[in-house]
Amino acid sequence: MSSNFFKVYFHYLKNYYRSRSFYIILIITILASIIISYLTFRYSGKINNLIPSKLSSLSKVSDESLILYLWAYIMSSLPVFSSVFFSSPAISSEMENRTAFYIFTQPVDRTVLILGKYFAAVTATIISILVYIIAELISIEAVYGFIEVNPFILSLLMLVLFIFAISALSFLFSSLFDKNMYAYISTFVTYFIIFYSANIALYLLYSYNAFFLLNNASTIIERVYININPTLFVSNFSLNPAGIHDVILSGTVFIFYTIVSLLLTFLIVEKKEVK
C-alpha cells in the first residue's frame, strides 16, 4: 500500500505544481507578502500610532507582537483559498473532466488514490504558503533583528494542522459532487457564511464561543501572539498569547475535522459511480 501511495502522491503533486492554479495562488501569496512586508518596514516602531483610540489597550502590546499577529492573521486565511483551488475540485474534477475512467480502472485501491491526492494537495498548499512564511521571517528579522521562536513555531504548527483540516473538508465536499463549481461554492459558503454566521450567532445569542467551528479554531494561528479572536465581537480579549489549553483545543478540532472528513470521503468515493 505504501509504495502505491507514494506513486499516486508524486503523480498528483506533479499535476498540481505544474497547474495554472498553483501559480495563481503563488501570485496571491506573493502579493500578500509584499503588502505585509511593506507595512512591517514602513510602520516599524509606529504601529501603535495606527491603532484607533477605542483599541488603545492594544498599545500595551509590543510592536513586534502586533506585527506578528497581523502576519499570522493574513496567513490563516491563505489555506482557505489554496484549498479551494487544490482540494475542492479534487474528486469532482475526476468526474467532470472524465479522468475517473482512467484512474479508477488502475489497479490501486480508491482509498490509496484519495489519500495520495490529499497529501499532494496539502503539500501544494504548504509550498504556496511557504513564500509568505519566508517573507515574514526576512521582514521580522530585518526590522527587529530577532524572532521569538516558540510562538512562531506554534503558529506554523497550527497552520499546518489547519491546512490538513480545511483540505480534508474540501475533499469531502468534492466527493459529494460531480461538478467542480458545486464543490467550490459549497466549500466557500460553508466556511465563509455558515461557519461565520453560526459562530457569531452562538456568541451573540448565548455568549457561547463555538470553538468547534473550523474558522473559530483557525484563529489560534494568530492568537498564539495576542489572544484576540477576530471572528467574534469580543470586548474582553486578552493581550497575552493564547494559553496551551487553547492551542490543544484548536489542534484537537483540526485533527477531528481531518479524520472525520477523510473517513467520510473514503466511504463516499468507494461507492461512487463513474457515469
Binding site: H11, K14, N15, S19, R98, T99, Y102, T105, P107, D109
Partner: peptide, 20 residues
C-alpha cells in the same frame, strides 16, 4: 485491485491529467 491487475481498459473517450 486484483482484477484490474489482469485487465487493460479503455472506457469512454479517454481523458488524462492536463499537466502530465
Amino acid at each position: 485491485k486484483k482484477v484490474l491487475m489482469k485487465m487493460g481498459t479503455l472506457v469512454e473517450q479517454p481523458e488524462f491529467y492536463t499537466y502530465i
